Computed example of a mutant assay.
Amino acid sequence: MSMASTHDVACTKCKFFDTHAAHQKTEDGLCRFNPPVNQPDEKAHGLWPVVSADDWCGHFSADTATAGNAD
């Protein structure tokens, strides 16, 4: 069974998912697994990737899961 078809895999169930203040009205959050992404402008701040609550990636595992963090 692929990870995409399981119900236990979602960004909100990962300890690296951060519900950011700018995204409180949506199911979006920030992925804190990797460092922020650099921007083309040298004066711009790096940005954390924005992910949907039901997104998932190849980094998800039992070690990165958090209990009770999602529906």
Rank of each mutant, 00 (worst) to 15 (best):
T12N: 12
F16I: 04
M1Q: 13
P40L: 08
P40V: 06
A67P: 08
S52G: 14
K25M: 09
W56Y: 12
G58C: 10
V37N: 04
T19S: 13
A62H: 11
H45W: 01
A70F: 00
A44W: 04
D54M: 13
A67C: 04
W48F: 12
G29K: 01
G29I: 04
R32Q: 07
R32W: 01
A21D: 09
M3L: 15
S61L: 11
N69A: 15
A44R: 02
F17W: 08
S5W: 06
F60C: 09
P35S: 05
D63V: 08
W56S: 06
L47N: 05
T64Y: 03
C31P: 02
V9Y: 02
D54R: 04
H45N: 07
E42Q: 07
T66I: 15
E42G: 02
G29M: 06
T12R: 12
A65I: 05
G46R: 04
H7A: 11
V51P: 00
A62Q: 14
A44T: 05
K15C: 15
A65F: 08
A4V: 09
H45S: 09
C31T: 05
A67V: 14
D28C: 10
F60G: 00
K13S: 10
C11A: 15
N34S: 06
M1L: 14
P40S: 06
R32N: 04
H23I: 02
N38S: 14
D63L: 13
G29S: 10
K43W: 08
A62T: 14
N38C: 06
T12I: 13
K15S: 11
F16D: 03
P36H: 05
P36L: 08
V9E: 05
T64I: 09
T26L: 13
N38K: 15
L47A: 04
A65S: 11
P40E: 07
W48G: 00
